[in-house]
Design a protein around this nucleic acid. Structure first.
Length: 473
RNA sequence: GCCCCGUUCGUCUAGCGGCCUAGGACGCCACCCUCUCAAGGUGGUAGCACGGGUUCAAAUCCCGUACGGGGUACCA
């Protein structure tokens, strides 16, 4: 019952924007830090956008991020009557009025009167009667100013002369978000409005409505710095990777994403960046949020994700990566996938991978029927330029012929031993791992071979060694 | 145009008048480890936009300037 009440109020656009996700996160952090209530409200004032699909596009990513809401989702569209009532009340009280001027007509009047572009309250005294296509405009005060006491930005004062008589109800009778905002925030008992800085300019208008409606003490506002791209522009869905769902698909972990997002516009005072969410909740305060826009750096996200992956237990990692390991487009027949093998090699993979989506590429050679192609650069380096490559492969095959392939340490020492023996015999350094690796994996780099060889088994290993040997000739 | 906001290493940040010859992280570079690739370890690189004040003392407070951004809709 007590405690702050905050809301995350996204417009249903069909996907969740990372900037929105960040706003949601900060609302959530504030609510959890203060023991308050986090309300999810879908801002669907703009008519009929609210299909289940659009709602899912908001709730699924939020749930994925672990941002649980205490109330909602509430729909602004379902509260339309109350918004309309508020509009009617303002009209009845003379605080708002009807206007039937089109954009063009307004411009024409401006030109005629030699006024700068703007509305200039043209219909204030025209006694327009309501009807189809007629909008309602709020009679904004001509003098004085409205002050927003922003927790993050401090005192922001806007002169009323710069606020024109804005529309609060469209020509089709639907209320715009400004009035819906005021009414809903009031009725839902919202105490703190935490949102992006792009909304800062609309706040005085909402405050004006709030006052005109006699709602009393308005909520406290906190405008978060925007998330920008490399060009320092507001993240746009045109050029930037903004859909949270894309990050999910690319194999980022929710905990990593959440941690990374928390670091944009905020930082813990003890400088420990990667840490459990409980600690972030504990340290988070609105007062410590920055004012300057932040660039969402993919490199930093990668680093954080990699750290989280390394910290996972092998089992948790494999379970998380399995959607990719068993995907239809995996680089091997999915039927060959073996969780036991993947699990045994998990730690080696975790150490090398940035996202979950990269996992299959490190394990493919264990699940493939045969090595179809060899990386030519690596082949050239390990075989063509190698010292007696054919000999190395032959000797390894011979040395391994009677091994049961159950002891990875023995496999390692046998293979290395071949290199050492040949080095002595030819009195030059002979590497044994490189030719073996390309024979087994087709590549020049990868996870350690020994453990993997025990899973591949003697027959497959010897087959691949023979196949590579045959390719030399 | 008008209104509003912002400015600490390339990037994200710590700093909230003396502890700052500005700290951490990412990135980058070097070295160590290493018969692959990584991981790990060590070290390095680089910043208070500029100009005036206020003060014994300013990255921290005030005012300008520059630059950047946001808004200016019958979108939210």
């Amino acid at each position: 019952m007590s405690g702050p009440r905050v809301r995350f109020a996204p417009a249903p656009t069909g996907f969740l924007h990372v900037g929105s996700a960040r706003s949601a996160l900060f609302n959530w952090l504030f609510a959890r830090h203060t023991g308050g209530t986090f309300v999810l409200r879908v801002e669907d004032t703009d008519e009929a956008k609210t299909s289940q699909e659009f709602v899912d596009a908001i709730t699924e990513p939020l749930s994925w991020l672990g941002l649980d809401w205490d109330e909602g989702p509430l729909f602004q569209s379902e509260r339309r009557e109350r918004h309309v009532d508020a509009v009617d009340r303002l009209v009845a009280e003379g605080k708002a009025y009807f206007c039937d001027l089109t954009r063009d007509e307004i411009e024409a009047r401006c030109e005629e009167a030699g006024l700068p572009a703007g509305y200039h309250g043209f219909s204030r005294d025209r006694d327009v009667v309501d009807g189809p296509g007629v909008v309602v405009r709020f009679r904004a005060p001509d003098e004085g100013s409205t002050v927003v006491d922003d927790v993050i930005r401090g005192r922001v004062e806007v002169a009323h002369e710069t606020i024109e008589d804005f529309v609060i109800r469209r020509g089709d009778g639907s209320p715009v978000f400004l009035i819906a905002n005021a009414v809903d925030d009031h009725e839902m008992g919202i105490t703190h409005v935490i949102r992006g800085e792009d909304l800062l300019n609309t706040t005085p208008k909402v405050l004006l409505l709030w006052d005109a409606l006699g709602f009393g003490e308005p909520p406290t506002y906190a405008h978060l710095p925007l998330l920008v791209n490399e060009q320092r522009k507001k993240l746009s869905k045109r050029r930037d990777d903004v859909a949270l769902a894309d990050y999910v698909a690319r194999g980022y972990l929710p905990e990593a994403m959440r941690n990374a997002l928390a670091l944009l516009g905020w930082g813990p005072d003890d400088e420990v960046e990667i840490r459990p969410i409980e600690e972030i909740i504990e340290r988070f305060t609105l007062e410590s949020v920055n004012k300057a826009p932040a660039f969402f750096d993919p490199k930093k996200l990668d680093h954080i994700n990699a750290e989280y992956i390394k910290a996972m237990t092998p089992m948790a990692f494999i379970e998380a990566a399995e959607p990719w390991l068993t995907a239809d487009d995996a680089p091997y027949p999915v039927a060959n996938y073996d969780r036991i093998v993947a699990l045994a090699l998990a730690e080696d993979v975790q150490q090398r991978v940035v996202t979950l989506a990269e996992a299959p590429a490190w394990l493919d050679w264990l699940f493939v029927d045969a090595i179809e192609e060899y990386d030519e650069k690596s082949w050239a380096k390990a075989i063509v330029k190698g010292t007696v490559p054919g000999r190395v492969l032959d000797d390894i095959a011979a040395a391994l012929a009677d091994d049961d392939f159950t002891d990875r340490d023995r496999l390692e020492s046998v293979v290395m031993g071949v290199g050492t023996a040949l080095s002595e015999e030819l009195d030059t350094r002979v590497m044994s791992q490189a030719p073996l690796r390309i024979a087994l994996t087709g590549r020049g780099a990868g996870i350690p071979l020994w453990e993997a060889m025990t899973h591949l088994g003697r027959d497959v290993c010897l087959e691949r060694i023979a196949a590579a040997g045959a390719r030399i000739d």
